[in-house]
Write a protein that binds this DNA or RNA. Structure first.
Lengths: 145, 145
DNA sequence: GTACCTGCAAATTTTTTGCGCGACA
DNA sequence: TGTCGCGCAAAAAATTTGCAGGTAC
C-alpha cells in the first residue's frame, strides 16, 4: 500500500499533525508491509530511504501515531514484565491510561469458539482476552467536556 | 495465601527446582497478594523479608517460575513495543517461543459476549484476543519425544 | 513568524550476564 | 560432594529527554 503525499497530508491534518517527510516514511514503513514491527525494525527499514534519520525520531513518531489513533500497539504491557499467579483460565481488564490490570473470570465472557482453521501447523495452547479501556480512577481524571 | 515450607518444597520438587529460601519468598510475594506485579515491585516487597536479596535473583526466579509453569506472564510482548497498522477489530495468534504475531480476522472467533457486569466505572473501549501457542517453525524445532 | 519537528548525545529504565562463593539434595 | 542458586557488578537492550537548529503551515 503506497500513500501519496496528498493523502498523507490529509491524514495528518485530520489528526492535527504536521506532515513531515520523516513522518510519512515512518508511517509508510509500518503500513506498507503488513506486520507487527518493533521500533528497531521500523528504524532499519526507514534508513533505506532516509539514512540520516534518528532512532529517537522513530520512537517519537510511533508514539505520536499511536496517541493519534493512526496506529495501535499490539500490547499495552510492553515496557515491563508482569507476572500473574492465577493459572486457571481468566481474562484481563486493562486500563490503557495507568496500565492497571483487573481480573475477570473466564465465564464472564461467553464461550469463545473458533470458526474456521488456524494457519498451518500452529499449535494453540491457550487464549487470553484483554478488555481495553479506562478504569474509573483514570476516567474521572480525564473528564470529557 | 500462606505457603508452608513443606508445601513449597513439594511444588518445587514437582518442577525440579531447588527449594531455596529466596525462591520461596519471591513466590510467596507474587501469590500472596493478588496482583500483576512487575519485577521491581516484587523486589521491593521481597526486600522487606530478605534485605540482602538482589534484583537479578528476582528476575532469574520469575523467569524460572514462568518457564516451569508456576506463574504466567501477563503479556508475551513485554520487552519491546510492537506497532500494528490494522485498525479494524482483529485478533492475534502469538507464538510464545519466537514471539511472532499472525493476524486472524475478527469473525474467525464467534461473537464474544459479556455476561455480567464490569467493575465499577470501567469504560471498555475494545477487546483484544490473543491465541497463544507455538507456530509451525518453532513446533518443528522443539520436537517432543 | 511561530509552533512544531528533527537529529544528536546523554540519561534512564529494564533486563541479562559472568563470576566466585555458598546452599540444597 | 556436586550441582545449582545467590549476590555483585558490569554490560546490554530498550526507551526517553534536552536542546539547538530546521521545517511545515
Amino acid at each position: 500500500m503506497r500513500i501519496s503525499h496528498e493523502e498523507f497530508r490529509d491524514i495528518c491534518r485530520k489528526h492535527n499533525l504536521a506532515a513531515t517527510h520523516q513522518r510519512q516514511i515512518i508511517f509508510q514503513a509500518v503500513v506498507a508491509r503488513h506486520g507487527h514491527y518493533a521500533p528497531e525494525e521500523v528504524y532499519e527499514s526507514v534508513r533505506h530511504e532516509i539514512p540520516s534519520i534518528s532512532l529517537a525520531t522513530v520512537y517519537k513518531n510511533l508514539h505520536t501515531f499511536v496517541q493519534s489513533g493512526m496506529l495501535r500497539e499490539v500490547s499495552p504491557h510492553h515496557g515491563s514484565l508482569r507476572v500473574d499467579p492465577r493459572l486457571e483460565p481468566h481474562h484481563h481488564l486493562v486500563c490503557t491510561v495507568c496500565k492497571a490490570i483487573f481480573d475477570i473470570d473466564s465465564d464472564a465472557l461467553g464461550p469463545i469458539k473458533l470458526q474456521g482453521r488456524l494457519p498451518q501447523g500452529f499449535r494453540a495452547e491457550r487464549m487470553s482476552v484483554d478488555i481495553l479501556g479506562t478504569c474509573s480512577r483514570c476516567s474521572s481524571k480525564t473528564k470529557k467536556h
